[in-house]
């Protein structure tokens, strides 16, 4: 994903920002961000509260004027060709509430009409999308009676009514219970894999970024501090921990083999652990070496560094536990 960016015809880059900046008076919310999201990617924008995620999304979706830099969506400048951008994007904003007096069906129809979709077509699409997000039963009810999770799902359905090729989701799972969160992830994956929708997703949940995003940018205090695939990012903050359980009689020989692959790390009784130099790719090599030494392995596990380690490495703070 996003690997073949060397091409001069970079028409595959659908979300492009350079030096994007936004200040509110004295407050610098976003401080010169460069982004290049390729068609078909799920791009995770990870950062703590107040990092500048929503401000970035609002600029990319034409709702907020940048105070510096430029951004293009599928080649259209967000300021000069705002209406062209609005036709091709779907947006689920973080704090855009839904008119509580309207029903799900009515809102779907309104959204469809605003996109110039015909009446009959909008009726079909509306009910189909509502069913897909599990709101078929509540479609005729006023939004005032919906739970927070139902509103987020309606929000997603609304953003999809015109079959956008690029979808912006600002903290889509904030406030969702674990079940709804997993359902949302599945829907995002489905959109991406079946329809090829490019997804730009902001989150402060490490797990969400890890689960969904092919590539991640970490933002803190308005600046990008890291960017890459979750695996690559994790591999930059140190070697993964390899733990091997063996029969006690083999423990010494196992340790002897293992320390050839990296420094020993603390492990509980009857187990040997090392920091695997060269990363996960060397596991097979380790197994072969153990086998050659006649060691029978009963259990083997590899612990990659977490995205939180990445975040900590970049900012000196932890993201986990900092959530409200």
């Amino acid at each position: 994903m996003g690997g073949n960016t060397g091409s001069r015809f970079s028409d595959d880059v659908v979300i492009e920002a350079s030096g994007l900046k936004r200040t509110f008076g004295e407050v610098v919310a976003v401080e010169g961000i460069d982004l290049a999201v390729t068609r078909g990617e799920v791009f995770g924008f990870l950062g703590p509260n107040g990092a500048g995620k929503s401000t970035t999304v609002r600029m990319l979706t034409t709702l907020l004027r940048p105070t510096g830099g430029t951004a293009r969506i599928d080649g259209h400048d967000v300021q000069k060709s705002a209406s062209a951008v609005r036709r091709i994007i779907g947006v689920a904003l973080q704090d855009a509430s839904i008119d509580p007096l309207m029903t799900g069906t009515e809102l779907m129809r309104l959204q469809a009409v605003l996109h110039g979709i015909s009446r009959s077509e909008s009726r079909n699409r509306g009910s189909e999308l509502l069913a897909r997000v599990g709101l078929a039963g509540a479609a005729g009810r006023r939004v005032a009676t919906y739970s927070g999770g139902m509103r987020r799902r309606l929000d997603l359905a609304l953003s999809l009514v015109h079959e956008p090729s690029i979808l912006f989701l600002d903290e889509p799972s904030a406030g969702l219970d674990p079940t709804s969160r997993v359902a949302l992830w599945e829907e995002v994956r489905r959109l991406n894999s079946e329809l090829g929708t490019t997804v730009f997703l902001t989150t402060q949940y490490l797990e969400e970024a890890d689960e969904l995003a092919g590539r991640i940018a970490i933002i803190d205090h308005g600046r990008l501090v890291r960017e890459g695939s979750p695996a690559d990012l994790k591999s930059t903050v140190g070697s993964p921990t390899l733990r091997v359980d063996v029969d006690p009689v083999f423990l010494e020989s196992a340790r002897h083999v293992l320390i050839g692959f990296g420094p020993e790390r603390p492990a509980r009784e009857g187990r040997c652990a090392i920091g695997l130099d060269g990363g996960a790719g060397r596991v097979a090599e380790v197994v072969r070496a153990l086998d050659d030494a006649g060691v029978t392995v009963s259990h083997l596990e590899l612990d990659l560094p977490s995205l939180d380690d990445v975040f900590a490495d970049a900012t000196g703070r932890r993201l986990e536990g900092a959530e409200k």
Binding site: L63, R86, L93, D95, A96, I98, L114, H115
Partner: peptide, 16 residues
Amino acid sequence: RDIENGFFDRLRASPC
């Protein structure tokens, strides 16, 4: 009310 609660932004992000 639409501006306060953000519904207006939803409309603005559409081709309305």
